[in-house]
């Protein structure tokens, strides 16, 4: 073995060890700073973690793009949903007067709000784009109460790290981290384009998370759970979509 190849061998060895320990340190720092998504395991975990961590480092407080009134889509597309079921039909027949949003988990005062109560709170509006992971988009004005207002109202405990939200549709749920949960554009939306939120678009109540793809803006929400850990929900990956093989973080 020549001198050069021995030197090369040693340099390579040192580089590999340094790289591996660097990665281990980076993983610890990332974990401590909430930069590891719940679907970080498995074949695609590395790419997913890089995407989530990079976007949280670059854009934790960034605001989703807002558009002018003239840019609102004239003919927005309401993606199809599974049949809504008997309970929904009964509530709809009564004009959603009995629609409720239950907030539980790590809260000082777990509360069940009526639709009327939610609508009586200070509203916030934004004209933003909703985009599907399939590639299509439309722009609408969304109106509702900021999720952060609801979190304040129920006295969310400081250790809350995720908000889990459920649809009235069976087994349909998602979760977001606190960066999105307390974000001023994240709404419990009850209005669209100046009217009540139409049923095909999630009425009477959907979560609106404009910095992520449409599948995180779950329609027909009835239940929020505040938690510090997603392991006990479904398969532990933080949502029905991620349990079904989709990315939990949908900012890309």
């Amino acid at each position: 073995m020549s001198k050069i190849s021995r030197r090369k061998l040693i340099t390579t060895g040192v580089a590999v060890v340094a790289g591996a320990s660097g990665l281990a340190v980076a993983a610890r720092v990332a974990k401590a700073n909430g930069l590891i998504p719940p679907d970080s395991g498995g074949l695609y975990g590395a790419g997913e973690t890089l995407t989530y961590a990079a976007q949280r480092l670059l854009a934790r407080h960034a605001m989703a793009r807002e558009f002018s009134r003239g840019e609102i889509s004239q003919n927005p597309f309401a993606n199809e949903v599974a049949p809504l079921g008997e309970e929904f039909n009964r509530l709809q027949a009564a004009g959603f007067a009995d629609w409720h949003l239950t907030v539980d988990g790590m809260a000082a005062h777990p509360t069940t709000f009526s639709l009327a109560e939610i609508k009586s709170y200070p509203t916030s509006s934004h004209i933003t784009m909703i985009g599907c992971e399939e590639g299509w988009t439309y722009i609408a004005e969304w109106t509702g109460v900021q999720l952060s207002y609801i979190l304040d109202r129920v006295g969310a405990l400081p250790q809350v790290r995720y908000v889990v939200y459920r649809s009235i549709q069976p087994d349909w749920w998602e979760s977001i981290d606190m960066s999105d949960a307390v974000h001023p554009q994240t709404l419990v939306a009850t209005g669209m384009n100046g009217a009540d939120l139409p049923v095909p678009f999630g009425g009477p109540m959907r979560l609106r998370v404009p910095r992520q793809l449409g599948y995180k803006s779950v329609k027909y929400i009835t239940h929020l759970t505040l938690t510090d850990n997603l392991k006990s929900f479904g398969k532990g990956k933080g949502g029905a979509a991620s349990d079904g093989g989709y990315a939990w973080y949908a900012g890309i």
Binding site: A59, A62, A64, R65, G135, Q212, G251
Partner: peptide
């Protein structure tokens, strides 16, 4: 095409002429 990225750097998509143009 990334909603998260566009939040932080809106000109990246605006310069191209929009989300669908980027796609």
């Amino acid at each position: 095409m990334s909603f998260g990225f566009d939040s932080a750097f809106p000109s990246v998509v605006r310069l191209l002429g929009g989300h669908q143009t980027a796609r």
